[in-house]
């Protein structure tokens, strides 16, 4: 059997004294497409940062392809939820995405890297903006640039924190098509609040609110949703296609 893409065992994490993640166990397979959902402050971004090795668990164990996350970083692509950067930082769209192809000290970017950048800019429909300074973009365009920067790496695990924030509906559907295509080659983990869109597009769901309430196939997730959002399932299922609430 092949090694798991991500293996999280009994992980606790505290900020100061506040327990933010409580005894999390989660496996992600090589070709999984998983959405992490849950209320604000539920610990979703924190969990992603554990997988990326940006944060260390207080107890428990995180492995990515069987190794310490920091050692597996070359295999990961990342879209942060927030990016703090100087609004008029002197960099254009193309160069921003190119930083996603970083190879290591003394190794420059190659023509292959530049081609890969143009390809993803095309996929994200922002090729015509490639020479634009990063601050002269709309919020949604900027989000597309950062999605492009995450996928340009051709990672083995693509990790995205609310990729659909400020993305228009048209791009949203082409985004999920692109994800389906990429999913043939990589595991994808994304955080989303759009339960409807997620449930029609991804294979697995993890419901997180400090504890992991449910993880597994989308079909059976209704119970987990109810439990973590603490509200009747009718509310949540409003607008969700039937896939999530199969007739019994």
């Amino acid at each position: 059997m092949s090694v798991k893409a991500v293996k999280i065992r009994n992980v606790d994490l505290k900020y100061d004294e506040q327990l933010v993640l409580d005894d999390i166990c989660l496996d992600i397979d090589e070709k999984d497409f998983m959405a992490i959902i849950g209320p604000n402050g539920g610990g979703k971004s924190t969990l992603l940062k554990l997988i990326l090795g940006i944060l260390k668990p207080d107890s428990g164990d995180v492995k990515v392809f069987g190794r310490d996350p920091v050692k597996s970083r070359k295999l990961m692509g990342y879209l942060p939820q927030h990016i703090n950067f100087d609004p008029d930082f002197p960099i254009n769209v193309f160069d921003t995405v190119l930083t996603g192809r970083y190879h290591g000290l003394f190794k420059g970017y190659t023509d292959k890297d530049r081609e890969a950048v143009l390809k993803v800019l095309d996929d994200m429909e922002i090729k015509d903006l490639k020479d634009r300074q990063i601050s002269k973009l709309s919020g949604g365009q900027m989000q597309r640039v950062f999605i492009a920067r995450a996928i340009v790496r051709e990672p083995k695990i693509l990790i995205m924190d609310e990729p659909m924030a400020s993305i228009d509906p048209e791009m949203q559907s082409s985004f999920y098509n692109l994800m389906a295509r990429l999913n043939k080659k990589m595991a994808i983990i994304l955080v989303s609040h759009d339960v409807g869109a997620v449930s029609t597009n991804v294979d697995k769901i993890a419901c997180l609110n400090r504890k992991l309430y449910y993880h597994g196939d989308v079909e059976n997730s209704a119970h987990g949703l109810e439990e973590i959002y603490h509200c009747p399932i009718e509310l949540i299922s409003h607008g969700i296609p039937h896939r999530i609430l199969k007739d019994h």
């Binding site: 990961m76 990016i83 703090n84 420059g108």
Partner: peptide, 22 residues
């Protein structure tokens, strides 16, 4: 000149740069 890629990446987005291996 030698570290221009790293300096740029770290100045722009330190967290992301560390994920790419800087």
């Amino acid at each position: 000149y030698i570290f221009r890629r790293e300096f740029l990446a770290v100045s722009f987005d330190e967290e992301f740069s560390s994920v790419t291996g800087v």
